[in-house]
Each structure stands twice: as structure tokens, then as C-alpha cells.
Design a protein around this nucleic acid. Sequence first.
DNA 1: TGAAATGTTGGGGCG
DNA 2: ACGCCCCAACATTTC
Length: 460
Amino acid sequence: MKPAIAWLRQDLRLSDNPALRAASEHPLICVYVLDDETPGDWKMGGASRWWLHHSLAALDRALKDHGGRLVLRRGAAEKTIPALADETGAELVTWNRCYEPFAVRRDTAIKKVLTFNGVAVESFNGSLLHEPWEIATGAGKPFRVFTPFWNALRHKGDVAKPHQAPHRMEFRGHVASDTLADWDLLPRKPDWAKGFDWTPGEKHAHDALYAFLDHLAAYRHERDRPDHDGTSRLSPHLHWGEISPRQIWHAVRARAHSDGAETFLKELGWREFCIQLLYHHPRLPTDPLDERFEAFPWRRSEKDFRAWTRGQTGIPIVDAGMRQLWQTGWMHNRVRMIAASLLIKQLGIHWHKGQEWFWDTLVDADLGNNAANWQWVAGCGADAAPFFRIFNPVLQGEKFDPRGAYVRRYVPELAEVPDRFIHRPWDAPCPPADYPAPIVDLAKGRVRALDAFQSLKRQS
DNA sequence: TGAAATGTTGGGGCG
DNA sequence: ACGCCCCAACATTTC
């Protein structure tokens, strides 16, 4: 029997992996291709590369337990994959689908080439509860509002049951591979990832899920508390496909039917919603869905943007979030909204700038989620918060980090500020000298944002 | 998955 | 006892 290639991309796992399962009927070649040529502007960011390195190492170890290994190749996948098929005499290539516009184009082209060469291709759904084209409005169009999308998903019939890892895998020997260390995916000088508190890989993805299931009942409210451990922290594992949404879905439903469980499932729904939005609107990372926003008078200030990225805005909850992002490669979701709102509304800086920063610094950076959520905060996206819905970071801080534990953890300059001033240290009797004054007056920033929005409305 | 401005109500102090 | 005013507290509207 001729070999089959399982081309792994955002599905770095053995269990519930339909592409791997199909290929494992043959002598098996598992390959990952590092392709910096195809994605264009969305070349993988630094934090993503860190995660990828460790996840590939974990996957390789798991394959070695089964007597195989992970083959690493570098270059444009459009050339690399057909070349590998040719080199190994493979008769089948399988993969689980990706939904980024460049990936869809790439995979379509590769499928054509392979088919022309007489190699069979099978693609699968390994990353979503349902394919983007499987959930549509009554008129057969994609949803642009979350709630009807979610209702349609819930009434879709049950999500497919996850599969176990293939019991037997026989690997084809002697396939040349790059060495992971040579890919230079890890940072050096400075090692900005030394504070990353993550363990990539399929095993830990499942550990994280089962640890989280114990907190599910409290999720509905605890998820909003950055000072607590109320969220699942599954987002990077999900992005890299170390665990599938189907596995999560069924684990949650088997365990609980609390309102916490329902709220959490809805977050899986938002992930699906964002990814299908990108699939149906390939320009989502660049063009506002609401075209009126093309004319929005954005401010340009590298100085303010830089202060935002470094966690030096002088606004505690925002700085804590931005420093958490820099130190750990992740930010609590509630704080993402607050920090994004400040950048877009109070500072008036284009959501593109925030999107790019998150793309580079988040371990869970995902093109669809990132674009859809930045547009959501900016008020120009699908089902978006109206532009005039402006977060007040002081009130948000007081509400969701009431004792300031989160702020103090990431902004040590504020450790000694009394609780009642922790979210507005500028009002404290003696503000710490080593913490910046706010770069924007929140009341004035709000008025400026509303004025800019009014000018947009007058034009259209 | 807001916040601020504005409107309404009702209890209590006080002449 | 009564009317008047003040102002929380809550509700509604507006941005």
C-alpha cells in the first residue's frame, strides 16, 4: 500500500482528528509545513511561534510513542506538499480545513495540483462544530447577527461525536525532516517569553479542560473577574487544535446543564461566529463591515499607541491588561474589551493598530476571532456594540477587580495605593511617583470620540 | 458583553 | 397637619 500524508496545520492533536484518522489507514506521514510566504500580511506573530514550537515538540513526542515522528518542512506549502507527495510516492493527502482567506486559496490550489498529479485529496472538518456554509439564514445567507446564528446552531441537531486517536498507526520510514530548533521559533535576546505560564500540547489541553469543568457552574459571573481564575484559558489550545471544539462541547454537555455551562458553550458559539464571518467576508481584517466607517477620522499618535502597547497609559486596568499580554502572551477577555475600547474610543486610534499588536503578542492569535472582535469593539463589525458604547475603565475596574488584586499583580508600582484609589491613582493623596499620569482625560476622550462619531453620521 | 444625562418618585426634615 | 423642598434611589433616555 502506498503512503498517505496527513498535513497538520491547526489540528496539532491525535484524537478527534479526521484527517489523521483517514490517512492512518495507509503507511503514514505526518507533516507540518512552516510557511511564511503564503499568509501575506498575516505571517504568524511572535507569541504564536513560541506556542507552535512547543506544540510541535509535544506532537512529535506523542507520535514517537506510537513509533513514528513528525516531519517538518519549510517553504510555500503550494510547492512543499506536492513535492513531498512526489518524493514519498504518496497516493493520498489529507487535511482538516482552515478558513483564513489565504488558506482557502492555498488549499484549493494544492488540491488542484495534487489531483492533476494523480494524488487523492480528502479534506475534513476538524476545527469547528459546523462548517461555515452549514449554518445559514432562512434566505440561505450567512448570519451577521450573533443571536440568530446561535439559535440556528443550537437547533442544528447534535454536534458530531469526537473520535479517539487511531489505535494503530504504521509510519513510513526515512522521510527527511528539518530540525525544530533550526526554525528559530523561540525568542532569544531578550527572551520575552520567560513569563509565559503555558504548557502547549494535546495532553495539557485536556488537563485544562477537565480542571475547568469543576468551575463551570460559576463561569457565568466569574468569567468577568480578571482577579480570579474563572475562565477556561482554552483559547490557545483551541486555536492550534490541540483540542477540538467537539471534544469540549461533549465534555461540557456530559458534565452539566447549569447556566454556567450554557454561557460557556455560547463562547464556543462566538468562536464559530467569528470564523464563519471571516470565511464569508475575506476582507474582515482590513475593511470595516459597516462601510460608513471607511470615513472615520482616526487619530494618529505613535506616542499614545506605544504607551498603550507598553502598559504605560496611566490607567491601571488597561496597563495591567497590556502588561499581562506582554508577560504571559494572553489577556483576560473582559480586560481585552476595556483595553481595546480605550485605544479605539478614548485615544481614537484605528482598530487596525490594536489588531496588529494582538496578532503579534497573543498566543491564541486567530485571524477570524481577532478581526471580528476588534471590529465588534470599534462598532463597525457584525452585531457590533454601538460606537457610543464607551467603557469607563475606572468603573469597569471597580466593578470587576474591586480590590485591585489584578492591577497590583501586573502594575507593581501601584501596590501601595489604597483600594479606593487603585483604579484612579491620580486622585490618591500621594500618587506613586514611578507610575505615569493618564495620557488621556477620560471625560474629554469620551467627548472627542462622540464628536468623531457625530461627524461620521453627518456625512452619511 | 455601557455610561452619562435626564426624569420620576417617595421619604423625611422643616417651617 | 400640611405643604414645600431636598435628594437619594431608581427608571428612562440619550449618546
